[in-house]
Simulated scan of single mutants.
Amino acid sequence: MSPTSRRRPGLAVGCALAAIAATLVSPAWADPAPTYAQLLAQLGQTPATLEAGANLDAAEARVRQARVRPNPVLGLDVENAYGSGPFSGMDNADTTLALSTDLELWGRRASRIAAARAEAGAVGLQRDLAVIDAAGRLALVYSEAEAAQRRAAL
């Protein structure tokens, strides 16, 4: 083995140690923390509040859907087709075409709309609760960080 091949691993280890020591010695500076008002203004972008807003939008869409009349249903029934004997093929098949619609009698539609509105109201309250909960957690974390910063200053 040549003497230069023995020195290369030692030189690489020495350079790595020097680089690690230089990074550990230098201070790490961070950007200043945003104010509580700035964080509170961005509260609507948290995943919990975005999810709660999407749930409210879906509940409002269900209210709009409850207001419209149900769609008619078109059905086609074919019986006694492709059997054996006299029922082979489609010549003797019984074919029935049906068109039906749901009659909403005795307040069914009004009760469906009222139920959808009640659900939307509950989901709206859940959204408000999610926003308030996120704001409370933010206030707690921010106050802990501010207390730690003041302790460090002391």
Score class of each variant (00 low, 15 high):
3 P>S: 12
3 P>F: 05
87 F>D: 14
16 A>C: 12
145 A>K: 10
59 A>D: 04
127 R>C: 00
75 G>N: 10
142 Y>F: 14
114 A>L: 06
111 S>I: 10
45 Q>G: 04
77 D>Y: 01
47 P>M: 06
93 A>K: 10
4 T>F: 04
143 S>G: 11
52 A>E: 01
34 P>W: 01
3 P>H: 09
103 L>D: 00
101 T>H: 08
3 P>A: 11
70 P>H: 05
62 R>P: 00
119 E>L: 04
59 A>G: 06
98 A>Y: 02
51 E>D: 14
108 R>Q: 09
39 L>N: 02
11 L>E: 08
147 A>M: 04
55 N>P: 01
110 A>Y: 00
104 E>N: 04
78 V>W: 11
124 G>P: 00
26 S>F: 05
129 L>E: 07
3 P>R: 09
100 S>K: 07
85 G>W: 03
151 R>I: 02
147 A>T: 05
8 R>K: 13
120 A>P: 00
1 M>G: 15
132 I>D: 15
124 G>I: 04
115 A>I: 01
21 A>V: 15
120 A>R: 01
137 R>T: 06
118 A>H: 09
108 R>V: 02
55 N>H: 03
25 V>K: 15
44 G>A: 06
35 T>H: 09
133 D>P: 00
119 E>W: 00
126 Q>C: 00
8 R>M: 14
94 D>L: 10
48 A>D: 13
81 A>R: 11
54 A>L: 13
149 Q>D: 07
108 R>M: 05
116 A>N: 03
24 L>W: 09
113 I>E: 06
139 A>I: 10
45 Q>F: 01
111 S>M: 14
73 V>I: 13
25 V>T: 15
97 L>C: 03
11 L>D: 06
37 A>P: 00
30 A>Y: 12
14 G>N: 08
24 L>R: 14
57 D>A: 08
152 A>R: 15
87 F>G: 10
100 S>H: 08
144 E>N: 11
84 S>V: 03
153 A>K: 14
89 G>P: 05
94 D>N: 07
104 E>I: 03
45 Q>T: 00
93 A>S: 14
97 L>P: 02
91 D>A: 15
91 D>H: 07
56 L>F: 04
61 A>P: 15
23 T>P: 02
107 G>I: 00
99 L>Q: 04
92 N>S: 14
17 L>D: 03
32 P>Y: 05
3 P>D: 14
